[in-house]
Design a protein around this nucleic acid. Structure first.
Lengths: 340, 340
DNA sequence: CTGTTAGCGCTTTCAG
DNA sequence: CTGAAAGCGCTAACAG
């Protein structure tokens, strides 16, 4: 039977009849004689010794924890990221601390200052809005931070971002190939990083493919959520008759899809729908929704690895990574083929 | 400009010309004279002092961290739970450490032993499978643990669980009211806690409402996932013709729905579909899916509060909470009303 | 009310 | 190769 009460190095050392330094060495795999090693192992086992993480942290100045701050724990994109981050981080021997900030930049600034309490060794941050004070706080942080998402030009911080302009380009190109001409856009708030980027991507792509767009082909949801999407789609359909709709994320796409079918408009027959982020929601929808994969999982993975690299080598040059988008074509944008 | 290098109590004390004890007191809001307070505040501010969490933890024997172990970070139910846990926990001043164990009980046992390293003050655990060794490990844990989910009879640990038998009862009752007679069941693996509970709930309910079921009305998916659900639903439809299908979770329900519509079977006209867990997936599906809310969010919230209570009062009697299910009726189970 | 001091449990020089 | 001892930064007796 193994002792279940809390035991320390001192206890183990006493039982083994050696010094605590020796115990520490053996347990950390440093050179020691076989006899010593044996004695220590035995004593440690008998006492059910488990080293104390806090004490170790205080001594070595590391916590082996990485913090991941997300604006919305429920957002499927963040969930996908978390999934990936969790995997990479734990494989590298770190624990994952989840910090849920709201989308309020102030929360994130507070997070940064609390980071300096040293409860984690580094931070992964995916801000929805990047304000001036946030940038300042990021710059003056003592701990390594990797940003997932775009940064204002000139801000030199490790970061990995998506190329949403190229992503929307893929969507528009695909729709054009399918013979669509009047491509509408359901966006989320334009004062967010993704909202702004996606809008500019839409406008750029429309022009690049020689199409035109007008104000009544564009609506903005108050939020990147299903509910807001329903309302925005309703507004869109009241003011125009597109033959294709690009949505700034999958939730908005699902909402748009629902709004369409509830009005008896067929997808993809009458209107094609394309989402972004390529989350489960797109795959599970009925019909399943074509979606631009902005590489959430890849971004998260790259970011986590970047942070781990930085922790190992604090002096490494700043690295900025761009993940290329891909398109997952599904039912919502392709007319059923005539099967023989 | 605030000093950005790391500063300690000693530095602040020197600058303020007082003892470190005084600094500690002031910063922790213990009684001190106004002048002292003022001096300390000023020095701390000037140095940009931030207390070190690790040192504090070592001293006070608390980390202010709560660990939440989930089998699958991507599962919507866990996501909903995380959401709630994150909220409760951070409001109570704890950080959330996310530990992703696989569904392997061995992983969870290792987690328990690493918990004894003291990186967290307590653990929320929602095991998919509860094995004998797991129970043993749970029992001998030095730290408070709250289990989300059912426990074998006789295991006295804080826990909060759902009443899935009653939940399926709600679903069956509703379907019976809608005039359905041949109610099939798409389950997940029966060697999991939810799988076993839901199967028994189905059998109990069928009997209670005077219906009958046969082997060909029951299928088991290899997993609680969409893909596995598609296959299971296909098998079911190949072997029987139910007029209603209860699915052991929403993902299976979405899969079943898709399998049905892809065969031209109308929902709810020909077949009614009911899911469980009442996740976003049910709401977003088209048609939206009626789902049994087993109170994931409530359970998570209750569990988190229970753990926090236990941390505050380690001697409190063991508490076992059962959350009552409710039914969210949506389109997939109700024939469209004739609107005047 | 404030200062001195003893550790929390561990790692890591520094001697031997 | 092993032991003694010095702290990591902080809190909490205990004196004064």
């Amino acid at each position: 039977m193994v002792e279940t009460r809390k035991s320390t190095l001192v206890l183990v050392a006493e039982r083994a009849g050696v010094s605590i330094a020796s115990v520490s060495r053996v347990l950390n795999g440093l050179p020691a004689s076989p006899q010593l090693t044996e004695k220590v192992r035995e004593a440690a086992e008998a006492l059910g010794y488990v080293p104390d993480a806090t004490a170790r942290s205080l001594k070595v100045g590391r916590t082996d924890q990485i913090a991941f701050a997300v604006a919305d724990v429920g957002n499927p994109v963040y969930v996908a990221m978390m999934h990936e981050v969790s995997r990479v981080v734990s494989k590298a021997g770190f624990r994952l601390v989840l910090s849920s900030t709201g989308n309020d930049p102030q929360d994130q600034i507070e997070l940064l200052s609390s980071l300096n309490r040293g409860f984690a060794d580094g931070l992964l941050l995916s801000p929805l809005r990047v304000t001036e004070p946030l940038v300042a706080a990021l710059r003056s942080s003592r701990l390594p931070i990797v940003i997932i998402g775009s940064l204002p030009a000139g801000v030199e911080l490790d970061n990995v971002r998506a190329d949403s302009v190229a992503g929307i380009g893929l969507a528009v190109e695909h729709l054009v190939e399918q013979g669509r001409k009047h491509i509408a856009f359901v966006n989320g708030p334009v004062d967010t990083v993704p909202g702004a980027a996606r809008l500019s991507g839409y406008l750029t792509s429309i022009e690049r493919f020689g199409l035109t767009t007008t104000a009544d082909l564009q609506v903005t949801a108050s939020d990147f959520t299903y509910k807001a999407g329903r309302k925005a789609a309703a507004r869109l359909l009241a003011q125009s008759s597109p033959d294709a709709i690009v949505c700034a994320n999958d939730l908005l796409a699902v909402a748009t899809l629902k709004e369409l079918t509830s009005r008896g408009i067929r997808v993809p027959d009458d209107v094609a729908v394309v989402g972004m982020d390529d989350t489960d929601a797109a795959e599970l929808a009925n019909p399943s929704i074509t979606s631009v994969d902005l590489g959430s999982a890849k971004r998260a993975k790259a970011a986590a690895k970047l942070l781990i690299r930085r922790l190992a080598d604090p002096g490494a040059p700043v690295k900025q990574v761009v993940i290329e988008p891909t398109l997952s074509v599904r039912e919502s944008s392709v007319l059923a083929e005539v099967t023989v």
